[in-house]
Computed example of a mutant assay.
Amino acid sequence: MNDSEPIVAGYDGSHEADTAVQWAARLANRRKCPLQIVHCSLWPVITHNMEPVPGIAESGLRHAAESVVSEGVARAHEVSADVEVTTSLVYGWPAENLRKLASHASLLVVGTRGIGGFLGLLVGSVSLELAATAACPVAVIGPVQRPGGPVVVGIDGEGWEATLRYAATFASQTQASLRIVHVRRKHDGHDPAQGPGAREMLDSAIRSVRNTTPGLEVADVLLSGTSVAGTLLSATSDAQVVVVGSSGLGLVKGSIGSTAHAVLHHAGCPVIVVRHPKQ
């Protein structure tokens, strides 16, 4: 995590985007890094007539898109008046544009934009695609804000070190405690948390955090359940953010894996996906 790199936030004028850009502004202020607000307009896909209506001031699709950008800046400054904000107005598909613009960012922040209440799924297709394909970590900002809660990170059998490092640094920057959760899957009524070797990963994780981020308040939780994602979520009811890793090994190219996918859909608080694809 390089704090000199900007945080990039997508903004489309929606309520969800308001929440996301303000979350990003607060974090940029803490990190003392720039915030880049990006609005992706789809109007050129539909029409080439972007100019003002003759005789009507401040009209036209181009002006409307520019107004959305200005609104995003205003929303950021409402919560962090001193944060350095730059803007980009681009045309075309949001996921493609945001992925390109965030190629050198420390974090890409987007809102949920899903259909709330539909089978409990809250995350839209653009957010999911970016979580699966962006080069940097992606934060998907849900409706619940718990600024005083812990940072919860889920670790599993492989590739967890990078996810843990990111979560520990994020917790330190936000002056939060860190809760490390490891879930063992139950099979046929057997509780693997009670078996030999169940604590080694968590003990190693705790040692790593204490070596790299001294002074950080850190706790560990070992759980078992039939659903890894559901069991992990049971430990996040007070979390300000949940950090999950993804190896990008889902059945569909570019997917993030079942656990990260489920956590994104069902965690009400912000979720950060840290990708570590296999080479």
Rank of each mutant, 00 (worst) to 15 (best):
A135K: 15
A135C: 13
A135D: 12
A135Q: 13
C136K: 07
C136N: 09
C136R: 11
C136D: 07
V138W: 12
V138H: 06
V138L: 10
A139H: 13
V140W: 00
V140C: 05
V140H: 10
I141G: 04
I141D: 02
I141S: 06
I141Y: 10
G142F: 09
G142H: 03
G142P: 09
P143K: 13
P143F: 13
P143A: 14
P143D: 13
V144M: 14
V144R: 15
Q145M: 02
Q145G: 10
Q145S: 15
Q145Y: 14
R146C: 06
R146M: 07
P147E: 07
G148N: 12
G148E: 08
G148S: 09
G148Q: 08
G149T: 08
P150L: 05
P150Y: 02
P150I: 05
V151R: 02
V151G: 02
V152I: 10
V152E: 04
V152G: 12
V152S: 10
V152A: 07
V153G: 13
V153L: 07
V153I: 02
V153N: 15
V153E: 06
G154N: 12
G154Y: 11
G154C: 10
I155H: 10
I155F: 12
I155R: 13
I155C: 07
I155W: 09
I155A: 08
I155T: 03
D156C: 00
D156I: 00
G157H: 09
G157Q: 11
E158C: 08
E158R: 12
E158N: 05
W160R: 09
W160Y: 15
W160F: 11
W160Q: 08
W160D: 03
E161C: 00
E161I: 11
A162M: 10
A162Q: 14
A162T: 15
A162I: 14
T163E: 09
T163L: 09
L164E: 07
R165L: 05
R165N: 14
Y166V: 01
Y166L: 04
Y166M: 04
Y166W: 11
Y166Q: 05
A167C: 03
A168W: 00
A168K: 04
T169V: 04
T169C: 06
T169H: 10
T169F: 00
T169Q: 03
F170G: 04
F170C: 07
F170W: 10
A171T: 03
S172W: 03
S172V: 07
S172D: 02
Q173T: 09
Q173P: 00
Q173D: 04
Q173Y: 00
T174E: 11
Q175F: 06
A176V: 01
A176W: 06
A176G: 05
A176I: 06
A176D: 03
